[in-house]
């Protein structure tokens, strides 16, 4: 990248950033981690409880897991619609962002915001503005893995 005339060199920029950081309060790493750990752990336990309940009523494990995913996604999206998800996420952070609930939230959040721009191009388009990268990268890499496996299987 060519350096434009008005921007400082890398060393100056680094030095200023370091200088600015001395004035910036640090996030409370440990406290935030503990909150994320507890919230994330609890969410997984609840998920397991639900899944066991579903399996107890006669579903197969694979179907129960799919059903569980649907339940988690729908409840996270409903909470987003009601405006509670961002409040929860503000407190527990990664505890709800990293589980599948965070993915569900990142679909609804931009879509709901662009409702006034129309329900086709506004909501329909923005549904993927944050979640799109996750789907694109995840599906592409998985397909690549599948193709490599197929190729290796063919060689055997």
């Amino acid at each position: 990248m060519s350096k434009s005339k008005g921007t400082p060199g890398k060393e100056v920029a680094k030095a200023y950033e370091k200088y600015a950081m001395t004035f910036t309060p640090k996030p409370r790493y440990f406290y935030n981690c503990v909150k994320a750990f507890i919230a994330g752990g609890l969410l997984c336990v609840i998920a397991m409880l639900i899944q066991n309940r579903i399996m107890a009523s006669g579903w197969e494990e694979k179907d129960a897991a799919a059903l569980l995913t649907i339940i988690l996604i729908c409840s996270a999206q409903l909470l987003t619609g009601l405006g509670w998800f961002d409040t929860i996420a503000k407190v527990v952070g990664a505890g709800v962002i990293v589980p599948i609930t965070g993915f569900a939230n990142s679909m609804v959040a931009p879509a709901i915001e662009y409702k006034k721009e129309g329900i086709v191009l506004g909501v329909g388009g923005k549904l993927f503005s944050l979640a799109g990268p996750v789907l694109v990268c995840g599906i592409s890499s998985a397909a690549l893995v599948g193709i490599i496996y197929w190729f290796m299987g063919g060689m055997r």
Partner: peptide, 17 residues
């Protein structure tokens, strides 16, 4: 917020700065 940063309902934590 929605133009420069994240949508309002998006769950995230803002850094202290």
């Amino acid at each position: 917020e929605r133009q420069f940063r994240m949508p309002l309902e998006h769950g995230n934590q803002k850094p202290p700065s």
